[in-house]
Amino acid sequence: MKYYGGCDVGSTYTKAVILDENGKMVADTTIKSKINSEASAKLAMDEVLGKVGLKSSKELAYLIGTGYGRNKVPFADENISEISCHAMGVHVTDPSVKAIIDIGGQDVKGIAVDTDGTVKNFAMNDKCAAGTGRFYEAMARSFEMTLPEFSKLSLTAKNVIPITAQCTVFAESEVITLVGENKPMDEIAAGIQMAVAKRCFVMAKKAGATDSITLTGGCAKNDGLKDAIEHVLKLKVINLKTDPQLMGALGAAEFARQKGQAK
């Protein structure tokens, strides 16, 4: 059996996926990224390789690296941009999806997907941390909660307390003030989710979303955000049957499979 690998070294998490010849996902992993991207890639790859009984990435028929910046995985056969990989990952998971918002640890991307899984257009916000994973991590800290707990908090809210600050630093102090004023926690959380959903509007537009959208990246697992996007943007959020955080790595592995088989 030949195996094909994809490795996505993100700014916060490194993800790796191995596909078999038929495109079935046979191994995956998500680990915290190290400062050195090569070291992160190696750790993640060692883990998935072990799962399929391989010793080294050289034993893979083809390996593709992706992530923020070029040549994230120097030992890969090739590196491809993470935008292309996210599009491909979603395409093989659900070919009907046309518009994606990828919300990772420190940037947000809007991607328009063509019928063959290639990228039609994209936009990126990599300047500002507001509305990214980092922002949520800071918010969860302010609430003294874990991230999954915080993600669900807003779902019970009856009202929304609007957050006016646009920026992570200011939003954090605004939230701390509201918490100090003993305002209901779930209503503050709903305000935060609404603020992030609004920020997604530009990206959804750039991705060409008209009635539905798919979220990828770690923040796609944030239920409160999904709910807010459906309410604020009036877009149906299509859930993926595979872990949305793995989409970049999955797309890379799928490219590896296509290229390896064409070799």
């Binding site: 941009s81 935008i83 292309s84 290639t118 990228v119 039609k120 257009n121 994209f122 990126m124």
Partner: peptide, 9 residues
């Protein structure tokens, strides 16, 4: 670079 590689291939 990103546009030329991803969209224009």
């Amino acid at each position: 670079n990103e546009y030329m590689r991803t969209v224009m291939r």
